[in-house]
Design a binder for these strands. Sequence first.
DNA 1: ATTCTATGTCGAA
DNA 2: TCGACCTAGAATA
Length: 270
Amino acid sequence: MPEGHTLHRLADDLTTAFAGRPVVSSSPQGRFAAEAARIDGRVLESAEAFGKHLFVAFADLPSVVHIHLGLYGSFVITPDVGHPVVGQVRWRLEGAATADLRGPNTCALLAPPEVDAIVDRLGPDPLRADADPDLAWHRIHRSELTIAALLMDQKVLAGVGNVYRAELLFRHGVAPMTAGRRIPRVRWNAMWDDLCALMRVGVERGRIDTVRPEHEPEAMGREPRVDDHGGEVYVYRRDGQGCLICGTPIRRRDVAGRNLFWCPSCQRRG
DNA sequence: ATTCTATGTCGAA
DNA sequence: TCGACCTAGAATA
């Protein structure tokens, strides 16, 4: 489930569930065993997200756990404690609750300079108060690359993935293959503001909902969408189905190994 | 039983 | 541009 909203939600939930108390730390699957043992019994200080990266800090330990969920990793918190391990659990934290990490791209104990290096190469994160949209604009407005590629580039924007990309482009009527330098400044400003609002909703609900109230299933007389990612969306994975606004079949195209979805009729502008 | 797919990223060809 | 990688559940045979 991992776009930026997932990691920010996770940071909040981990902090709420574990912060301020010692944790039991283990690696049932074994690949994080030595590090998990160093953490065992320490007090969890905080969990924080930057884009799709999650960092968990412990008292009296300068190093920080760096987690990246990749395409299919999950970190699930359950309120009970002591239940059996099911499947491959890279890292288990137990305190007032249990948190099981599975299938992460990365789970490593990093020294502060290494953490800084990761954060420094990320573009602005719409979910962070200190984010500066001008840094993203600076890269976009001088680029020959498509806006679809730029939105996914974590050096341009941190936290946007395949769903938010497709939905943001749809909501602003932007043709995905438009070069970054053809995006007007006013358009980018509107897209940034919208992205901040959309991703906040994502954190609150724990899913990606992008459909405006007037197009929601109840208002349109259609069934709510049921899909793996769980949200109400305009174009993501709706290829072949009619656009919720104009009825034109949604298109899908493989771009750099990822599926891009868009409405060829509603999305024509730069 | 096997193959496929997924909200991601890296590095080699 | 392609394969590799981390895992689970759905789809296909």
